[in-house]
Design a protein around this nucleic acid. Structure first.
Length: 370
DNA sequence: AGTGCAGGCCAC
DNA sequence: AAACGTGGCCTGCACT
């Protein structure tokens, strides 16, 4: 990191506080005069990774150096150093706290330290996750719901094409791409599937052409066409969204699949507040239902483990994932027990019209088990 | 030294 | 007008 700092000062032509976005923005856009800068709402130059990647693509050196420095700096300060400092000397372990009434949707949240945002997406980040290891002679078992939110959407919005796809165990993003772009699933271009995946996630979040364009780095006109095509192919999704927004506006809340209410106070306001509340109205039943289901699984777990004579302990919940620790010899039985419990957790009070699928694996560390 | 906000970025 | 949902933690910075 020291080498990256020296390189940044060299490229900037002077020293500055490398951790200060404000100073960086002034160097890039006021001193160096780079084009394409945007301001944040407070008037400061925006210097987030998207902006810096754009500048780096123009051939400028400093933005690349800063992005690399921030990546390492983030991992060191937020994870490597903070997590070691959080080890409890009595247990030799890191213990998080869960809040059950913070997230509007009914998700848990995790603090001091937050163990629900341990890196996983990059190779460097996964090294952090490798440091979460089982006691000697034990293994970690990670069990996560596959595509639970899209399955819930298929159920709630009652979309036959999506429900059938899940029943047949198809690759849902590939299917979406196939339907939208009229291409066969076999031998599909990975970039086409990636675009469909972004659309699927966007749908769950209450997408806009602007947001999808930003996500995919394509013109807004093109993104809007994608969304139009998606709704044409899955008209039931648009109907669900319209109905949900109308319900929210009439009642001031939406409900999960179990009937739990989620208040949306901003739904009757105007302008951006209302747009925001409308996206919440679309997302909250989906995210909230997933939260209900995994909580039902967690509540049943102690009983289920005891009945199966398993000594496994449930350690963590990460929204659609449960992490356990157990003796190596128990792992196979634990995986079967946990899978069955999680996959059946929607019932019996709710009969989901799509199957829930759980992937589970055992390994000595969290990165490999995930 | 403590507080709170802004900007940024990690996860699902 | 804002622009894709739910969170928490880091540093910098202005302030008390």
């Amino acid at each position: 990191m020291a080498a990256l700092e020296a390189e940044a000062y060299e490229q900037a032509g002077r020293e500055f506080n490398i951790g200060s976005p404000k100073q960086l923005g002034e160097i890039l856009f006021d001193e160096m005069g780079l084009e394409g800068g945007k301001k944040t709402k407070t008037g400061a130059w925006q210097t987030d990774a998207d902006v810096l990647e754009g500048l780096a693509a123009e051939g400028h050196g400093l933005p690349r150096t800063i992005v690399d420095w921030r990546t390492l700096s983030k991992l060191r300060s937020t994870y490597t150093e903070a997590l070691q400092a959080a080890i409890n000397p009595d247990t030799g372990r890191v213990h998080t706290s869960y809040s059950m009434a913070v997230a509007q949707t009914g998700r848990l949240s995790s603090t001091d330290p937050n163990l629900q945002n341990i890196p996983v997406r990059t190779e460097e980040g996964r090294k952090i996750r490798e440091a979460f290891v089982a006691e000697k002679g034990n293994v970690l078992v990670s069990a996560d719901y596959s595509q639970i939110e899209l399955r819930i959407l298929a159920h709630i919005a009652d979309i036959d094409a999506l429900k059938d796809a899940f029943k047949e165990g198809l690759d849902i993003h590939a299917l979406t791409a196939s339907e939208m772009f009229d291409v066969p699933i076999e031998g599909m271009d990975p970039m086409v599937r990636r675009q469909a995946k972004a659309i699927n996630f966007g749908i769950i979040y209450g997408i806009s052409g602007f947001g999808l364009a930003r996500q995919l780095g394509i013109p807004q006109s093109e993104a809007s066409e994608y969304i139009k095509t998606y709704f044409k192919r899955f008209p039931g999704i648009r109907a669900y969204m319209d109905e949900t927004k109308a319900f929210a506006k009439e009642h001031g809340y939406v409900t999960t699949a179990y009937g739990r209410k989620i208040n949306l106070s901003g739904i009757k306001s105007k302008g951006p507040q209302r747009s925001f509340a409308e996206r919440q109205a679309i997302n909250a039943p989906i995210q909230g239902s997933a939260a209900d289901i995994i909580k039902r699984a967690m509540i049943r777990m102690p009983d289920v483990l005891a009945k199966a004579s398993l000594s496994a302990r449930m350690l963590l919940q990460v929204h659609d994932e449960l992490v356990f620790e157990c003796p190596e010899a128990e792992a196979d039985k634990l995986i079967e027990t946990v899978k069955t419990t999680m996959q059946g957790a929607a019932g019996p009070s709710l009969q989901l019209s799509v199957p829930l699928v759980v992937d589970a694996r055992a390994a000595s560390n969290w990165a490999e088990a995930h």
